[in-house]
Design a protein around this nucleic acid. Structure first.
Lengths: 202, 202
DNA sequence: GTCTATAAGTAGATAGAC
DNA sequence: GTCTATCTACTTATAGAC
């Protein structure tokens, strides 16, 4: 609870923390108010309802994810470079916010229509193009023959899964593993990129 | 709502479905009662409280996971075989229950003490032994040099992540992808095992 | 064991003073 | 804008009849 930012900003940050950790169903307006150092009435004054406040937070998160994807897809580059830059961008994002993967997966699961916001920004089109690029480079022998869907899910799984489990791991890991954890997630970058290279180098 | 099983059994099955999809916080006793074809009062008659009912369901799930791990770790076998049998066991389990990964990750996240039940059955000991086995086989040149922690997380991510995203994917995938999905998860078995082999064959 | 009715507690939302 | 007090609705849990 820092007092030198605007109330609205403090509410948003508090809401982000609480929603991310507890999810929409588990979050309590009272807890968000406490986190922000105000009372419940003010939450409603600024955001009218819990639902509206949640949509604001979720929207922000989705926007951030889309932005990352967009920046990757807009540039001209080869498949290998494109895929490895996904790793760089998302590992960095996730290191700053380790609750993000589970939060997003959950809330989309509870309410699949929310997924559509991600599918805006013609992500689907980008994906189709990526798949085509993969097949083309495979034909021309620049990369190895691969099922693009599996490849993409592999990469996403390798990036995201450790972060999805991290909050649990970190809390329950025996004391002697703690120091090891600090570098572990950072190492993932190299680890996953190596996977991509191994998978695609002919 | 099938009437030819015992009430307790119907409650358990209904609770499993609802808790798995909505989580502890999002589940409603009323919905569980409806699913089971009874009323709320009976839920309390059989399980006293929502918390108790939840613990029953969660306990079952953890027991199932532990059993799988146990069966893998108890047999004598080489590292490669041990790791690939993890794939076989868990892909099959997850195909039957696609909500399981997110459910378990979430509930552990909400309440990390729940993780301890998994750590019983000396899973930790088994892990340590596995790590030692990996290092030994690497030294003797049977498998390639690898960081065991990364390897294990890689495997788990490759197995689990697609299932964690599946409920969402399946709901939002454009119509033309649907038929493709049916075999997709089954194909993961081969896909992930190939990854392990590539990663470990010298 | 199973139901209906209801109590008790909790959480989101609003009214109104300052 | 911010607060306290309160309302309303929902959810878990129990009482008590059958």
């Amino acid at each position: 609870m820092v007092k030198d930012t605007s109330t609205e900003q403090r509410i948003i940050e508090a809401a982000r923390r609480v929603f991310m950790q507890k999810g929409m169903a588990g979050a309590r307006m009272q807890e968000i108010a406490d986190e922000a150092g105000i009372n419940k009435a003010l939450l409603h004054y600024y955001f009218r309802s819990k639902e509206k406040l949640f949509e604001h937070i979720f929207g922000e998160v989705i926007a951030r994810i889309s932005m990352g994807l967009k920046s990757i897809f807009e540039k001209e580059m080869g498949v290998l470079e494109r895929l490895t830059s996904i790793v760089d961008i998302y590992v960095d994002t996730l290191m700053e916010n380790r609750y993000l993967p589970l939060f997003v997966l959950n809330e989309m699961n509870q309410n699949p229509e929310r997924f559509s916001s991600l599918l805006q920004e013609n992500i689907i089109e980008h994906m189709k193009k990526l798949f085509i690029e993969i097949r083309q480079e495979a034909e021309s022998g620049q990369i190895r023959e691969t099922n693009p869907a599996h490849l993409l899910l592999n990469i996403l799984g390798l990036i995201i899964f450790p972060f999805a489990t991290y909050p649990v791991m970190q809390k329950v890991a025996p004391e002697e593993f703690r120091p090891f954890f600090n570098n572990f997630l950072e190492e993932r970058k190299h680890e996953v990129k190596q996977f991509i290279i191994n998978a695609l180098t002919p």
